[in-house]
Design a protein around this nucleic acid. Structure first.
Length: 408
RNA sequence: GGGGAGAUACCCAAGUGGCCAAAGGGGGCUGACUGUAAAUCAGUUGCGUAACGCUUCGGUGGUUCGAAUCCACCUCUCCCCA
């Protein structure tokens, strides 16, 4: 396929959008030029570790960049880090990650791929598991690999250095992680590797190993780590401050509406396909004093449609959100909660607990006494009040937990 | 191999025999204010209760009327020396 390549400059325009760090720009240009000249697509690598079950929008940033490369006619190589996941990437961690079993990583990888399919056409990718070349390595192989780096070099890494300085443990196997990832680059002969800025050290290690293996070093292209819903921490599942690809449209919309205003433009830029010109217009409008909430709603819809939702679903998600939170109406999908009819005059705190709206009686009591409990919109503030509930009544606990009474 | 330091609730971190269910900060939750934004203010943050009780301070035993606090052993981590 020699035809179809855009000019180097056209490609760069697309490929560099949203890239915050690049090693090196000169090499990137050279590789693209050679590619156009010879008609040989670049091999662009992105590794994902199947450590959890679900992808967040944060994961999609480099994934979308991979899509950009594929759309420019290049060859995408997606590495499923089934073997590295067992070691656990220490990046950004203050302590060692738990090591996963092979069964866990296999199951996770399957789910990852299903979700990645919402971002790009995975059938066009070369998908490889790094156990393919890492698992057969002998101790002698590993030793030769380890001999290609030094402790001092490893300690240049911010997170290792920090832990070292603070006297916290660093296990030897954690040093293997960047070496393993770099070995992936050698194995697939990557021309370019994508990753978040937190991956810089790992990506650079790939260059070293490739050079030692007699290959031309890969270009490292980094996308930003986008903040989560709280606006400060990076988006992650463990912190709960994320929007997930498996979230329902309603959930995506609601979560989007809870981000700080300062994140609106960032989210548009990295999580949606909204054209730059439109994003610029929005930014200008907000600067001119227009209510950011309207743009946040637009963002919510855009996120839904970008990740597989229909326009109709997006519109309905917004409608339901407005009804529930702007007009204070009840949501239309209140789950039933079963209360034993025989215990009917029941203490308020016990009702909340029994309904599963509070994790313990103590917590239920607290919630009630703080004014966070109501029955059919009527506040109950005495945790010991004896309630006689009727079927169909709506319990509300806190800001957003609801339950419809079913007696049994 | 030798010597020293340390392990406290979701996280950080006080506390060295009773006044400790355990200071303070962060985070979380609730309420007020709002645009389920930010900021701010107030309350709350082991479990079960009416009072009050019960189980928690790495693990296991022990000393004591009484232990997060003292002793022994164990597990784990860090530092210095080799």
């Amino acid at each position: 396929m020699t035809m179809g390549f855009m000019s180097v400059d056209e490609q760069l325009k697309i490929l560099m959008r949203g890239v915050v760090d690049l090693v090196t720009e000169e090499e990137m240009r050279q590789k693209l030029e050679r590619s156009v000249k010879t008609g040989r697509p670049l091999r662009v690598k992105l590794g994902i570790d199947p450590t959890g079950k679900d992808l967040t929008l944060g994961h999609t940033v480099p994934l979308r960049k991979l899509r950009d490369f594929v759309e420019c006619g290049h060859h995408g190589v997606l590495i499923i880090g089934d073997y590295t996941a067992m070691v656990g990437d220490p990046t950004g961690r203050n302590e060692a990650r738990p090591q996963l079993t092979h069964e866990e990583t296999t199951a996770n990888a399957q789910r990852y791929l299903e979700q990645a399919a919402r971002v790009l056409d995975v059938s066009k990718l070369e998908i490889r598991r790094n156990s393919e070349w890492l698992a057969p390595m002998t101790f002698a192989d590993v030793t030769r690999l380890a001999a290609q780096s030094t402790v001092a070099r490893m300690l240049e890494r911010e997170d290792f250095k920090k832990r070292y300085d603070e006297g916290r443990p660093i296990y030897i196997h954690e040093f293997f992680y960047p070496l393993m990832q770099g070995t992936d680059s050698v194995a697939v002969q990557a021309d370019v590797e994508l990753g978040g800025t937190d991956q810089k050290f790992n990506l650079l290690t790939g260059r070293d190993l490739q050079r030692n293996a007699g290959q031309e070093p890969q270009v490292c292209l980094m996308t930003p780590i986008v903040e989560g819903l709280d606006g400060t921490e990076k988006m992650s599942k463990s912190l709960g401050n994320y929007i997930g690809l498996d979230h329902s449209p309603d959930e995506m919309f609601g979560r989007t509406m809870s981000i700080p205003d300062t994140l609106i433009i960032t989210y548009f830029t990295y999580f949606t396909d909204v054209p730059q010109a439109e994003i610029d217009r929005i930014q200008a409008a907000m600067a001119a004093g227009e209510n950011p909430m309207e743009f946040k709603k637009q963002l919510g819809r855009a996120i839904i449609t970008t990740y597989g939702g229909t326009e109709e679903e997006a519109r309905r998600a917004e409608e339901r959100w407005v009804a529930q939170f702007s007009r204070g109406e009840l949501p239309d999908d209140i789950p039933d909660v079963e209360i034993p009819a025989a215990e009917m005059p029941m203490q308020a705190a016990r009702v909340l607990f029994t309904a599963g709206l509070a994790p313990s009686l103590s917590e239920a009591r607290r919630l009630i006494e703080q004014g966070g409990f109501s029955v059919d919109g009527e506040k109950v503030t005495d945790s010991r009040a004896e309630l006689t509930l009727r079927p169909g009544q709506v319990l509300k606990a806190g800001k957003r937990k609801y339950g419809r009474v079913v007696l049994k």
